[in-house]
């Protein structure tokens, strides 16, 4: 005959057994299984409680109370055990170490060619002043490359640009200036474009490549003046070179020197005050304090005549610069060939 006190004792013993049973368990699933084994319908606590009916009714609440205490104890033991396990896991996790000095796993590694980077920057700078981008073919007609730019056949200026010919009337464009012609043929003024692109000349040494790139600018409108050309160039040199080599803070000056290009009149060479030595004299400016960066001028009335623009009503200016030279000056590239060889030892530096 099971007595009330026996039952209570059994229940309390179960509580102790449970604690022992889960002590070695290290995963939640096993602990929950043990919990079910003790507390489930067929669990050990239920088994004990089957004897409840045989107890005098007055004792039953005592036993029920004891059973509840055991159930609470078991639940608490489960929670405590799980918490201890979580704490141990956390502890173990925090004990992990890594050789943080190992190299990072490479990501990306791709990049634009230095000339593309420079070109995009140049285009952005001129875009600030409202210039749009125009393009044209590289295999060009003699007419667009020379004739329309007031360089007829047998003109001595053709010596300045030794030309690759494809056929009698087809050349590899020697400058981006034919884009001027195509633009003026296609659009009435006002015109404000830059035309970046590769060009070709029969010239090959450390500073000349038979293919190289230029950026050309053209503004045609009523009332365009030499002073406007100067202002645009001043903006450009300060934006592009202003931060270079310590001179910094803007303040670069532009000097226009008379020169001759058949398609502009007046024509000028563009010098900027040396951005690298603040005029003190260095290798890049050859000690002169000035660096030549391109050619420019006011669109020659004969050029307007070729494209049907009224030279009395409209005036314009054009300028052209070598993109390689910009990159050479700013990034210290000392051999123009490096740009075109696909040599990763060079390309990956930029």
């Amino acid at each position: 005959m099971t007595t009330t006190s026996d039952l209570i004792a059994q229940l309390e013993r179960l509580g102790g057994e449970f604690a022992q049973a889960i002590a070695p368990l290290a995963d939640e699933q096993a602990i929950r299984a043990a919990q079910a084994q003790f507390l489930g319908k067929k669990g050990q606590v239920s088994e004990v409680m089957k004897a409840l009916g045989r107890l005098p009714p007055a004792d039953r609440p005592l036993v029920g109370q004891a059973a509840n205490q055991v159930k609470d104890a078991i639940a608490q033991a489960v929670e405590a055990r799980l918490a201890a396990l979580a704490a141990a896991r956390r502890q173990a996790d925090l004990a992990r170490t890594l050789d943080v000095t190992l190299p990072g796993r490479p990501v990306g590694g791709g990049h634009l060619h230095l000339l593309t980077q420079v070109r995009l920057e140049l285009v952005d700078i001129f875009a600030e002043l409202g210039f749009a981008v125009a393009e044209g073919p590289q295999v060009e007609t003699d007419w667009h490359t020379f004739e329309a730019l007031a360089i007829p056949k047998d003109h001595p200026a053709r010596d300045m640009q030794d030309t690759f010919y494809i056929a009698d009337e087809l050349v590899l464009r020697t400058h981006t200036s034919p884009v001027q012609i195509r633009t003026m043929q296609a659009h009435p003024p006002p015109i404000r474009i830059v035309a970046p692109g590769v060009v070709y000349r029969r010239d090959d040494d450390a500073t000349h490549s038979p293919m190289f790139s230029q950026i050309e600018g053209l503004v045609v409108d009523e009332g365009v003046r030499v002073s406007d050309l100067k202002g645009v160039l001043l903006h450009f040199v300060n934006r592009f070179f202003g931060g270079a080599g310590g001179a910094g803070g803007g303040g670069l000056d532009v000097r226009l020197r008379p020169s001759y290009f058949p398609f502009v009149e007046p024509g000028v060479e563009i010098d900027m005050s040396c951005a690298f030595c603040a005029g003190a004299g260095c290798r890049l400016c050859k000690g002169t304090g000035w660096i030549e960066i391109g050619g420019a001028g006011m669109v020659d009335p004969d050029v307007f005549g070729h494209v049907g623009i009224d030279a009395e009503r409209y005036t314009g200016f054009a300028f052209g610069m070598g993109i390689e030279r910009m990159a050479m000056l700013r990034h210290g590239v000392n051999d123009i060939k490096l740009y075109y060889e696909g040599d990763l030892r060079f390309l990956d530096q930029f």
Partner: peptide, 25 residues
């Protein structure tokens, strides 16, 4: 051009061209 050569490009001010609306390229 020759007047300007003698006058001196250094004596030309720097201005920006007036922006007029043209066909959007």
């Amino acid at each position: 051009e020759d007047i300007l050569r003698i006058h001196g490009y250094g004596n030309v001010p720097a201005t920006l061209p007036a922006l007029h609306v043209g066909p959007a390229p």
